[in-house]
Amino acid sequence: MPGVATILMEGTFQTSPYAPGSLITVASLSVAETSSILSTTAKLAAMPAAEKATLLAGRRIALLFYESSTRTRTSFELAAKSLGATTTLVSDKSSSIEKGESLKDTGLTLRALGAECIILRHNAGGAPFVLARTTGLPVLNAGDGMHQHPSQALLDLRTILTRLGLDATRVDETSLKGVTVTITGDIRHSRVARSNAMLLPRLGAKVLLCGPPELLPEEALTLGEGVEIVRDFDTALRRSQVAMMLRIQRERLAGLELDLTEYTTNYQLNEDRLARCAPKALVMHPGPMIRGLEIQGEVADGPNSAIEDQVGHGLAVRAALLVRALGVEL
């Protein structure tokens, strides 16, 4: 029998019509859309800078940041500028948000000032939905609480495709067949892990989640098909072509006790472990990384590392997301 909840929900909880071009969660991103974003990214990467700078000339983009950020903010901003757009940055520390202005009113103000798209980083999960519902503008989620970081998953995808010598201009359900990606560390608090674990398996990859139960509860298995929990890091690494490391999010631990020495022993990616278990694996980290904790400095700087590539791909993918958000056809 279908749950009555489902029956009631069918008429009641339809996904609100968010402005086309919004990207809030990879859950609503089809394989075809993913492919189209990658294709746009490749076209933009190949385009002369002068031509690129005309694409969004005269368009206004707002960056709204309720949480600190280096990579994501800078790359969205530089991506927008490379397309000729005007950007403005509003952060919670130096705006009327400090005086108690709501997210809705902040969004409406930005819209009234001419913003055509808002890039939002927020410490509360789901905040981009609020902004998209109340402003009607395309919203790009630049990380919301522990929920999602879709542009990170897309740039990680492009990094993996490129470094593994696969076609990075398009994807389908089998593009990552035979590729195993281990995501290790603080999965519980990681929006990056959630976005990657939902996106990569849809393209054929196997995702192994690795970490102690405090940071990786069994519910993580429900993120989707193709996700597996492997507690032993060495075992997971031996199966993997890609090792994605995550920072322990001390700011979100909320009373959780963790023995960092033990954690480092069991889950740090260091030269010895890499050489023993996965000498050819691609090493990734969304940043910020804590050298000496989840990753040894030598590995982060070593030949397997794609960490700087990730930053570069971030710029390219975010340019494509902006072009898509503002409805420009290439």
Partner: peptide
């Protein structure tokens, strides 16, 4: 239940909520 805003379980994990 400090900091919790919904039921504990699979949906909360997916949404990143406590």
């Amino acid at each position: 239940t400090g900091g919790c805003s919904m039921n504990h379980g699979a949906v909360a994990f997916r949404l990143g909520l406590r």
